Simulated assay, not measured.
Amino acid sequence: MRRGPLVSLNGSRSAADGAAVPVSPEELAESALAAVAAGAGEVLVHPRTPCGRESLSPRVVGPALEALRAAGLGVPLAVAASIGSESDPAARLARVRSWTVLPDRAAVDFAEPGAGVLAEALLGRGVAVDAVVRLGGPAGPDPLARFLAWPVREPRRVRLTAELAAADPGLVAGLRGLPPVEVVLYGREAAAWPVLRLAARCGTGVRTGVGDVLRLPDGRPARSNAELVAAATAASR
């Protein structure tokens, strides 16, 4: 039986984006607990310093994960290991290697330099990898090609997380021939709900949360991650 949606608790957003965006470890734990109660099967977080800056420092990642686990969520926890937290690939790699508290998974953006090396380092530490790619957007570096060029030696511990610019079945068809890895689809803002419904039809995993979209399918502002998860679960049936 497929697990519930992956919920992106905060993404690149800050408290300035509204009360629905959790920032502190306590807010993340409260939001995650409600989202799991609403049906979320996994949690993705962008840890932040007290001043709101994204960070991969063990002094930031550790407390966030500890607060989430102390809440008794009972679902896998993922951390975004992205350029938003550390722009230098070597420094990002060093940060990940210095973690003292490990997530279950980490999201690695294959549009960013050093993604393959970072993913290998995470796998070496026992952390599963979500390989993030974007499909259908502006021309530029092809993250899917980078992913395909990366030797997936442990397919059970690697997942492809694809952001679709639009709910285009052709984009999903282009994923045929991938290594035997699980696939999660998501969209952002106006694309979020059409892509989620497409993912449900295709039988892939789905992702939602205020990190991706701030409005419900009917256009109303979402009051919480839990509200988005409940709507996603209903739309996936």
Rank of each mutant, 00 (worst) to 15 (best):
P89S: 08
R157M: 05
G187T: 12
R69V: 09
V210H: 07
V43E: 05
L160A: 02
A15D: 13
R146D: 06
A107N: 03
A128G: 13
A94C: 05
V206S: 01
G11I: 08
P143M: 08
V133N: 01
S31C: 01
P180L: 05
L9F: 07
V23F: 00
L6W: 15
V127S: 03
V195K: 08
A40K: 04
V36R: 09
S87F: 08
V195H: 06
P22K: 05
V184A: 01
E189H: 10
P50A: 02
R223K: 13
A162Y: 06
L160Y: 04
G219P: 10
G170Q: 12
V158R: 03
P22H: 05
R156Y: 00
S8C: 14
L196P: 02
A162K: 06
E26I: 12
L185D: 02
P141K: 09
L44S: 07
R59A: 15
G114R: 04
R156T: 08
A78G: 10
A222I: 04
A16C: 10
N225H: 06
A111S: 15
R105P: 03
A32M: 12
A38Q: 06
A107F: 06
S14D: 15
L65E: 00
S224G: 07
G219W: 05
A128V: 02
F147A: 00
P113D: 14
L185I: 07
L28V: 13
G136V: 07
L56D: 09
P76M: 08
V172Y: 02
E26H: 14
L9Y: 02
G52Q: 08
D88N: 15
V181W: 02
P221Q: 00
G84T: 01
A131T: 05
R223P: 03
A131D: 03
S14L: 11
V181Y: 02
E189Q: 13
C51D: 15
L178I: 12
P76N: 04
R59W: 11
A166K: 04
A32E: 08
A139H: 13
W150M: 08
P50T: 04
V45E: 00
P63Q: 05
A199H: 04
P138Q: 06
R153P: 00
E154S: 09
A91D: 11
L33E: 13
R157S: 11
V184N: 03
R188C: 11
A38H: 05
P194Q: 02
V158S: 10
